[in-house]
Nucleic acid binder design. Structure first.
Lengths: 106, 106
DNA sequence: ACTATAGGTAGGAAATATCCTACCTATCAA
DNA sequence: TTGATAGGTAGGATATTTCCTACCTATAGT
């Protein structure tokens, strides 16, 4: 599945935070992003590469900076993967779940 | 964040497939689950442990079998993490995105 | 042309993930 | 009680991840 890379990219808290940052504050150069993390810049570059290869960000050269921009469309795939599970947590939250389990397992 | 384990658990295609299986076909013993994968059973046991520690499945002893059951509630957390991004892919899909980017970056 | 800045790449160390086989315990069935 | 089955745990090989420092290129400013 192509979405493997997307799920793998989301496994890192750092990468999720980068996405949240780009979502809330718009496109940013690497330095501004790196300033938020207690990590050497080349390490962040690695994370950005993972996000790029998952299609979750794109880069655009502006002078000697590179603006990284959120590309949210692949996240739609994650959302769709979750869909079949939604009724389960809904049932749980409404207290209906235990009843259905008894039916399933009998 | 507690959800770190959930996102990490979802990074493996095998584990996502296990969840889908439990979702579609209800609680199952380890053997039935293992039959779906080209993998030694102890390896699958490892994957089940990861899912258990993320709170995504629970086990119940029944005779000498252990029924694994989907616990979907932690997935709600993933869904909520996605919420802020939703408007971005919506805009993209409706063709509105490029317009907003021009505003952001100017 | 020279210097400083932005940021990618190389290479390596340490930690973690993913698979295996071998082995152990618990339960069922004869 | 003895044998077979379900499934977890141990330990190890290999691959991947995640971080680092050192280095390189490209652009901007003087």
């Amino acid at each position: 599945m192509a979405g493997d890379r997307v799920f793998a990219a989301l496994a890192s808290p750092v990468r999720r935070e980068v996405l949240r940052l780009l979502c809330e504050e718009g496109p940013q150069p690497v330095q501004r992003i790196a300033g938020r993390f207690d990590m050497a810049r080349p390490s962040l570059s690695e994370h950005l590469r993972v996000l790029r290869e998952a299609g979750l960000v794109s880069e655009r050269k502006v002078g000697r900076q590179r603006l990284y921009r959120l590309e949210a469309v692949p996240l739609h795939e994650v959302r769709e993967w979750l869909n079949p599970f939604e009724r389960f947590w809904r049932e749980k939250l409404t207290g209906l779940r235990d009843l259905l389990d008894d039916l399933d397992e009998s």
